[in-house]
Simulated scan of single mutants.
Amino acid sequence: MDTSAAIDLAHERAHAYRFLSRAFIGAPDAALIDALLDTAAAETTLPDFYREAKQADRETLRQDVAADYNQLFLGMSAHPVAPYESVYTSEEGLLMQDARDEALAAYRTWGLTVPESFGLPEDHVALELELMALLADRAASALETGGGEEAERLAEAQRTFATEHLTWVDALCDDIQKRARTAFYYNVAALTKETLAADRELLEEQ
């Protein structure tokens, strides 16, 4: 792969991870829904949501997706989903376990700042995906300035973080697909699994 193609790929990976991070950090606002539905890629990346939205009032759609986010992730249902690594990887299935501390250490190493207003355990899936976006962006910048060794160091950091901190996300997405009431979160879960699987293969090849 030549340098130009590698730069484009790094930007694409950053964009994909950042979108997924945004989808998990909170319910989409009207601007995000409009941006998604006015982008041709949504027809293939979020196919069920795209088909559903074609026949729906967008404000009603936004409200339905927000309600689904609340019932999935904010405990407003009998069986919510916990988007935290510790819950899926600790023996007790509890929050604030070793995975949280290790994820926070990785953020500090690579300069990902968690806003004080975040107010949730730092092993939240949205933050872990945001770190992958940040590292991909930095790899693109390194390649743009001729820093091949730095780009490889960043690729290794991505491989390590994906192996140590993202293996639980498939199980999270399976739970989301079982409990989602809207096509949006069902499709986001499917897209997350597809993105991580493809990226694992890509990082191994690199």
Rank of each mutant, 00 (worst) to 15 (best):
S4Q: 13
A5M: 08
D8Q: 13
H11Y: 11
H11V: 15
H15K: 07
A16C: 14
A16K: 01
Y17S: 10
L20H: 03
R22S: 15
I25R: 06
G26I: 03
A30G: 13
A31L: 14
A31H: 08
L32V: 14
A35R: 09
A35C: 13
L36A: 11
L36T: 06
T39V: 08
T39D: 15
A42P: 14
E43H: 11
E43Y: 01
T44F: 03
T44P: 09
Y50L: 05
Q55R: 12
A56T: 11
D57R: 03
R58N: 12
T60F: 05
V65L: 13
A66T: 14
Y69A: 06
M76H: 06
S77E: 02
S77D: 04
A82K: 00
P83C: 10
P83G: 08
Y84S: 08
E85R: 00
S86P: 10
S86T: 05
T89I: 02
G93W: 01
D98Q: 12
A99K: 01
D101L: 14
D101M: 10
D101C: 04
E102H: 04
A103T: 12
L104V: 10
A105N: 10
Y107L: 10
Y107H: 07
T109K: 10
W110H: 15
G111P: 08
L112K: 02
L112A: 04
T113P: 07
T113I: 12
E116D: 15
S117T: 12
L120P: 02
D123E: 01
A126Q: 04
M132T: 00
M132D: 10
A133Y: 01
A139M: 14
A139I: 00
S141K: 05
S141F: 02
A142E: 03
E144Q: 14
E149S: 15
R153V: 05
E156K: 06
E156I: 09
Q158Y: 07
F161V: 06
F161R: 05
T163N: 12
T163Q: 13
L166M: 13
V169W: 07
V169N: 02
V169G: 02
D170T: 08
D174K: 02
D175V: 01
I176W: 01
K178C: 03
R179C: 04
A180C: 09
A180S: 14
R181M: 08
T182W: 03
N187C: 07
L191N: 03
K193D: 07
K193E: 06
E194W: 00
T195I: 08
A198Y: 00
D199H: 05
R200E: 11
E201A: 15
L202N: 07
L202Q: 06
L203F: 01
L203Y: 02
E204M: 09
E205M: 09
Q206W: 07
